[in-house]
């Protein structure tokens, strides 16, 4: 996480092309000390790994347009981000799932507020398979059977006779929880599901594993095949494309959120407004997710 922060600062430094070594050293020192003494003018953003690239791109562009602002973006998972929001160690929490009742209660106990939920983008949670996999579409039921371990061979889905290698996420991931709620209907993942530390790791694993299957944000789908998903065996197979994600016809479309403790004001407010503006939403498309409108 620390690394992501420093990278963000490094990118910022490059973009401004600050030549002097001393300034750079100071910037790095500030970045390292930042968690210890968060300065007032800094906005910290923490949470969903699905949203890290989105948040970083937003931060870069925003800082280019507003040189006085400093925005730090780190990942860790939606759960980690929400914990940080509750503990007061972040200003904005990025989450790829809604806050649970228990989490809202904790926030209310500490700050006498239920928090502010701001949808900032939409994602079509994609199902990845290896590029050589002959399968093109899959039903929600089949997904459930695979990820709960009831179906273990591609043959049962009309594919080759080979064991299915199931890739999942660590349980701190919002994507893990979203998938569990919406696809597995809260059943347990199979114990054979391998937990990957991030969406990029899932994509990488599926790209290398001929008979692998995994899931993750649409923006990460490079070098693998994305399956079209059917709501049930009767309905049409739908790809996670912009139109289908926006109108909700893609069965695994989901909103991505910012969570805050209170109504955003000051630096945080300016950043949130910018994210929701045309400029901010244009970046959503560039990164590979879908804008709200």
């Amino acid at each position: 996480m620390q690394k992501v922060q420093i990278e963000g600062v490094a990118k910022k430094m490059c973009s401004r092309s600050v030549g002097k070594t001393i300034t750079q050293v100071l910037a790095i020192a500030t970045a390292l000390l930042a968690p210890l003494a968060a300065a007032a003018s800094e906005v910290t953003v923490k949470g969903s790994d699905t949203m890290v690239i989105l948040g970083q791109r937003w931060a870069e562009e925003y800082m280019r347009a507003h040189p006085s602002a400093t925005i730090q973006v780190t990942g860790g998972g939606s759960g980690t981000g929400i914990s940080a929001l509750i503990n007061g160690t972040t200003d904005i929490c990025q989450a790829s799932r809604t806050m649970s009742a228990a989490e809202k209660e904790k926030l209310r106990d500490r700050y006498a507020t239920v928090g502010v939920e701001i949808p900032v983008a939409r994602d079509g949670l994609s199902v990845y398979v290896n590029a050589s996999n002959p399968l093109a579409e899959i039903t929600m039921d089949q997904l459930k059977l695979i990820f709960t371990g009831k179906v273990t061979n591609w043959k049962e889905l009309g594919g080759p006779d080979a064991k299915i290698v199931v890739y999942s996420r660590e349980n701190s991931s919002g994507t893990y929880v979203f998938f569990k709620e919406h696809v597995l209907k809260n059943a347990d993942y199979t114990v054979r599901a391998q937990s990957m530390p991030g969406t990029a790791a899932v994509v990488n694993a599926v790209a290398k594993e001929r008979f692998g299957i995994g899931y993750g944000g649409a923006a990460y789908a490079k070098g693998i095949k994305v399956l079209r998903v059917k709501k049930d065996s009767e309905s049409a197979a739908i790809a996670p494309e912009e139109a289908h994600v926006k109108d909700g016809s893609y069965p695994l479309s989901r909103p991505l959120f910012f969570y805050l403790r209170n109504k955003p004001t000051g630096d945080v407010g300016a950043f949130v407004d910018w994210v929701l503006s045309g400029q901010g939403q244009a970046i959503v498309t560039k990164v590979g997710y879908y804008p709200l409108k």
Partner: peptide, 29 residues
């Protein structure tokens, strides 16, 4: 691979105690 499979086969994915602590401690209440 971090899958908590209880088996004797070396070809199965495993989840060790240390990796479990590292992966999960950041998130827990």
């Amino acid at each position: 691979g971090n899958a908590a499979i209880l088996s004797a086969s070396p070809a199965d994915s495993v989840r060790t105690v240390s990796a479990t602590i590292a992966a999960e401690l950041a998130e827990v209440v």
